[in-house]
Amino acid sequence: MQVRHILSSVALGLLVSGGHHAVAQRPVAKQKVILDTDIGDDIDDAFAVALAFRSPELQVLQIDAGYGDTHLRARLLEHFLRDAGLPQVPVAQGVTTRTTNVFTQRAYAEQQPEPSHPYPDAISTSLDLIRRSPGEITLIAIAPLSNIGAMIDRDPATFRKLKRVVLMGGSIHQGYGNNKVPEPEWNIKMDIRSAQKLFASGVPIFVMPLDATILKLDAAKRQAVFGHGSRLTDQLAILYKQWGSETPTLFDAMAVAYAVDPALCPTTPMRIRVDDSGMTIPEEGASNAKVCLRSSSDEFFRFYLPRVLAPTKH
């Protein structure tokens, strides 16, 4: 009962104070989206996936499992979509890579039975989707960029037919935590060559770097989410417990939020060079990206929480 009381107080307060983000959404044409994720290590991917499916402005065409053990990530995604009551969109397996990081949510993924047929190849199927809807698809990239690099290698002309890439990645002035010095950010440094290919691709790129994505899900907000008791929030709670740390930072969720409402993270045109250590360095010259250098955590959560805590429509 105490958790429910906290939920009601926090969620109601957010809904009341949320400004235009808490108001029922006006009917708009849905954006076609491919979501590329390395769900299963850090917990922020799961929160980003949840937001994508609870945003009526987005039509998720496919989810691509990226980086590391992409087969197991695809199993996790199938499990999550099913048990969270989310739409059963195609799940595709991306490029498998070597990694030494911990797959914290492995137990959850392994509860999903092996598929009866191999997962579709994320590179081929994503390129096919782009060919069928040229200039219409937003690729939301919240993983190391191995799948993106493979798409560029296989068919750069088709890749350039994306409407845009919205990327969580990079570090311009802000590092992790309270570090006020830029540093190589995970999604860039785990596949530097693919990141270099993306920034040279000519596709419109919208970058959500560490500068704008240190978004802490504090104790009150965690209680609001995990005490909510919906199918979606129950699955988020299970994954959070397997993740095994205390306070999530919802880096990746900002990329999804930006795709829905760019006002949440205003961007500045910049020319970004990815160096061989994974640094994203602003340089003089014609811009190749639009970069968000700051955001409001309060505004973000006023946008995020009402969507994830809203009743499911049947």
Rank of each mutant, 00 (worst) to 15 (best):
Q2A: 15
L12D: 15
V16S: 11
A22R: 11
A24M: 09
Q25Y: 10
L35N: 02
G40H: 01
D45Q: 14
A52T: 07
S55Q: 12
L61P: 01
H79M: 13
D83K: 14
L86K: 11
L86E: 07
A92C: 04
G94Y: 06
T96C: 07
T99S: 00
A109K: 08
S116D: 14
P120S: 03
S126H: 09
L127A: 02
L129V: 09
P134Y: 08
I140Y: 01
L145T: 11
G149A: 05
G149E: 03
M151R: 05
M151P: 03
P156I: 04
A157D: 14
R160V: 00
H173F: 09
K180Y: 00
V181E: 14
E183R: 05
E185H: 03
W186F: 15
N187M: 00
N187Y: 08
I188V: 15
A195W: 06
L198N: 03
G202P: 07
I205C: 02
K216W: 08
A220I: 00
F226D: 10
L236H: 03
E246M: 09
F251S: 15
F251M: 08
M254T: 06
M254Q: 10
Y258K: 04
D261Y: 09
A263L: 13
P269W: 11
R273I: 14
D275S: 05
S277L: 13
A286P: 08
A289D: 06
A289G: 08
K290E: 15
L293S: 09
L309A: 04
P311V: 09
T312V: 13
